[in-house]
Design a binder for these strands. Structure first.
Length: 803
RNA sequence: GCCGCGAUGGCGGAAUUGGUAGACGCGCUGGACUUAAAAUCCAGUUCUAGCGAUAGAGUGAGGGUUCGAUUCCCUCUCGCGGCACCA
């Protein structure tokens, strides 16, 4: 047993005093930038799940430091946003005050775990010196035409009293509070992220070190689909009904056309629609539905036929019926589809219900029975000049036909929607725009940045949908920077994602007041070599950050097109009862208590040992005691003037290599296991280790258990920190095995094993095997058909099977 | 429904160009030490049969490829994550 409290406190203080973690700018050294997703400092503090990723990056950082790299491993706080604002309202505090208290608590909790952060580089997104550059980037986007105002209906959370982006919804409910959301028209600032859709998709291929699952999620999020826009004529009207389809090849099977109820064509066709009252009623009913109801797949498809209107198929001049139905979304494609019930399941279901005819135009290429609704590619059937073509070439030729006849064109669509970038809330970066009656939306001049958040009496949402900022007359009323006339400030603030979209750049150059980041420094430190965080950010933060970075690249602020070279997702730690850690279940484990009772080194080691890094797994205090026992065993190893056994020497050098390799691979659980095996071997030789090898043991342990390793390092008279020593290099000769276990199997089944010198030949092994009693009895009276020999591994004797 | 990932002892998990399944840890059993307990140390621990040597079975289920499959292929079941009427 050792006094972890005393040791850990002592070294944390010494490291601070000696500025062990100060990050230098010596650009002649190779750099390594390791980044954690920075935390949101909530009022409840950290539970043991939060630091898991930080422990892993800290181990990697310490290894890299010992390997001679200039390591940047910073930490900061993503502090703007709703939770703090709501927390402040509830506790009758100012959001700024609540943030300061929460950050101080988080820092304290991080400090006791012994991380290598250089707090000189700390970032807070709420610091005006930081958000000056968030605002600056926004204005650059405004200048570049990427930002626009939109009056589209937005998702409105009646409980949070704020607008939400689609990204902030879960199952049509508010991600934060779980309330059902409503549709409410609201003036919003929107960023044209869709302009970058193609690059965000294509450049995923430049990220081989990202986990495929996260790349797949981003791909699905962008949702690219290639197809065609086709103009259907409207009978007895000049209007064109433009539809989008990925399956032009099925168009000869089109028996009706469907418009989204909100499609503006509906209003334009009003004069021809003979059942308008019925149509209007349907449109009104759809409007009242929440998105949740509308997108519920289990519900029946509904729609109304537009009596008096017909659409003309440009390929064959056929007139087909026109419907409105809420299964067609106005926000995707053209808000209109051509329906081919024979080859699309939704259309099939709808046609069945409304008695619309079903016409086959594709037959399966293989000789199989065609189902009523066949959705795969095949051969074209009854399709005029295109009959007999396969689907793929038909699509190419039919699009060419459309373009030649001016009836449509090739078109790529994305599910990705533009980024609603404003919130009607107080605790966010003010959007630096001034509204002038004469000049329109005018940017706040760059030299006036940062545009700071004013103090306000009440942080409660106004309830009208406007930000509390709107109530501060002397802040709102200003003069137009362009014409000098009276004007009003924008009162919306930015979403929480804004500050986190580029923070990794600021760590490189945190105090620069002339630029977002110095370009030479950025060239040296970027990109982030290793980024670690929760997979839940795959389609939000990670997507926005990639977009923001590409924009900064385009305007020449950064040198590289992608911000994060390697990405690893951290698995959750759930409660001992198998449920997510939450106050509600009373299963939260507080790291403060674990550190007090077992020490930070034990916590670090345990979280790395408990499961593969990216897997989620349940906390188990018994397992924690197991790694604490391991540390106690390390302490009890004594140094000796006697040489070590061959087994220990061999194992030590193998372990040096394995631990370093495993850290770089984020396979911490097997690294810890390898160290345990080594220590067990040392105990088998009496718990003594030679003076020459003892320091090596401490060095491989140091990244995992820094306090203890540092203490033991000092105990053997080392004057400087163990983290200023060089990570040991394994001796390849000492790692070599002189003996191997040769497996002898008969028909693939292990029957015996032989301890033999390495490099032994097949004939020698065979001779020994045939003599072996355990092998002999299986071979008696049997004919040997063949032998398979894997050098230094096994020999398999194959005999003829005679029942 | 679609996309991705996964399923191994009582538990967490280990094992990759296909070659000893169950490393390491927890738990459990026994022993040493102790007046006793805790701690520590040592030994054992997949299941079945056997005192034992040993034999048989065994990596979610079924099939296949192979001298040999936890690993590769096909079908299915269950679980996790993401997306979801995207035309």
């Amino acid at each position: 047993m050792y006094d972890h409290l005393q040791i850990e406190k002592k070294w944390q203080q010494k490291w601070r005093e000696s500025q062990l973690y100060r990050v230098g700018e010596d650009q002649t050294k190779p750099k390594y930038y390791i980044l954690d997703m920075f935390p949101y400092p909530s009022g409840v503090g950290l539970h043991v799940g939060h630091p898991k990723g930080y422990i892993a990056t800290d181990i990697l950082a310490r290894l890299k430091i010992m390997q001679g790299f200039n390591v940047l491993h910073p930490m900061g706080f993503d502090a703007f946003g709703l939770p703090t604002e709501n927390y402040a309202i509830k506790n009758k505090m100012q959001p700024q005050g609540a943030t300061d208290i929460n950050i101080a608590n988080y820092k304290r909790q991080l400090e006791i775990l012994g991380f290598t952060y250089d707090w000189e580089r700390e970032i807070k997104t709420t610091d005006p010196r930081y958000y000056k550059w968030t605002q600056w980037a926004f204005l650059k986007m405004f200048e570049a035409g990427l930002v626009f105002e939109s009056y589209e209906p937005i998702n409105w959370c009646p409980s949070c009293k704020t607008g939400l982006a689609n990204e902030d919804l879960e199952d049509g409910k508010c991600e934060r509070c779980g309330s059902e959301i409503e549709q409410k028209p609201m003036r919003q600032w929107v960023i044209r992220i869709t302009d970058y859709a193609e690059r965000l998709l294509a450049d995923l291929d430049k990220l081989p070190e990202w986990e495929t699952s996260i790349k797949e999620m981003q791909k699905n999020w962008i949702g690219k689909s290639e197809g065609a826009e086709i103009n259907f004529g409207a009978a007895s009207s000049e209007l064109k009904i433009k539809v989008f389809t990925t399956r032009v090849d099925t168009i000869f099977g089109c028996t009706y056309v469907v418009l989204a109820p909100e499609n503006e064509l509906v209003e334009k066709l009003k004069s021809q629609i003979t059942n308008w009252s019925q149509v209007a009623e349907y449109i009104a009913a759809v409007k009242n539905k929440t998105n949740l109801e509308r997108t519920d797949l289990n519900k029946d498809k509904t729609g109304v036929k537009l009596e008096g209107v017909q659409a003309i198929n440009p390929f064959n001049g056929e007139k087909v019926a026109v419907f409105i139905a809420d299964y067609v979304l106005n926000s995707y494609g053209t808000g209109a589809v051509m329906a081919v019930p024979a080859h699309d399941e939704r259309d099939y279901e709808f046609a069945q219900k409304y008695g619309i005819s079903i016409k086959k135009s594709i037959s399966p290429a293989a000789a199989i029975e065609a189902p009523d609704c066949y959705t795969d590619d095949g051969l074209l059937l009854a399709s005029g000049e295109f009959t007999g073509l396969n689907s793929a070439s038909a699509r190419t030729q039919m699009i060419a036909w459309l373009e030649k006849n001016n009836q449509g064109n090739k078109k790529v669509n994305y599910k990705l929607q533009d980024w609603v970038f404003s919130r009607q809330r107080y605790w966010g970066e003010p959007i630096p725009i001034i509204h002038c009656a004469k000049c329109g939306a005018v940017p706040v001049p760059y030299e006036q940045l940062p545009l700071t958040l004013p103090n306000v009496k009440s942080y409660e949402p106004s309830g009208t949908g406007e930000s509390p900022l709107a109530t501060i007359a002397d802040w709102v009323n200003t003069t137009c920077p362009k014409c000098g006339g009276p004007a009003q400030r924008e009162t919306n603030t930015m979403p929480q994602w804004a500050g986190s979209s580029w923070y990794y750049l600021r760590y490189i150059d945190p105090h620069n007041d002339k630029a977002l980041v110095d370009k030479a420094r950025e060239k040296y430190w970027s990109p982030v070599d290793f980024y670690v965080g929760g997979a839940e950010h795959a389609t939000r933060h990670l997507f926005y950050a990639r977009f923001w970075h590409k924009f900064l690249f385009d305007i020449g602020v950064v040198n590289y097109e992608e911000p994060f070279k390697k990405l690893k997702a951290v698995g959750l730690i759930i409660g001992e009862d198998g449920r997510k850690m939450s106050k509600r279940w009373g299963n939260v484990i507080n790291p403060d208590e674990v550190v007090a009772q077992y020490g930070a080194d034990s916590l670090r080691l345990y979280e790395m040992f408990m499961s593969p890094f990216s897997d989620s797994s349940a906390w188990n205090t018994k397992g924690l005691i197991g790694v604490r026992k391991f540390l106690d065993r390390v302490i009890n190893i004594t140094t000796s003037t006697e040489p070590d056994s061959a087994v220990v020497i061999n194992l030590l050098h193998k372990t040096i290599k394995k631990v370093a390799d495993d850290i770089l691979d984020f396979k911490f659980n097997t690294a810890v296991s390898a160290m345990m095996i080594l220590v067990n071997a040392i105990y088998n030789q009496g718990g003594k280790l030679s003076q020459a090898n003892y320091p090596l043991l401490l060095q491989i342990l140091a990244p995992f258990a820094p306090h203890l390793a540092e203490e033991l390092w000092a105990n053997i008279g080392q004057p400087d920190s163990i983290f200023r020593s060089s990570y040991p290099t394994p001796d390849v000769n000492l790692m070599k095995d002189s003996q191997i276990t040769m497996v002898v199997s008969v028909n693939g089944k292990m029957r015996a094993s032989l301890e033999l010198p390495t490099g032994i030949s097949e004939s020698e092994v065979l001779a020994l095997a045939l003599e072996h009693e355990l092998v002999k009895k299986w071979l008696e009276g049997k004919e040997i058909v063949k032998k398979i020999f894997v050098p230094d591994k096994l020999i398999n004797i194959v005999i003829k099977y005679t029942p």
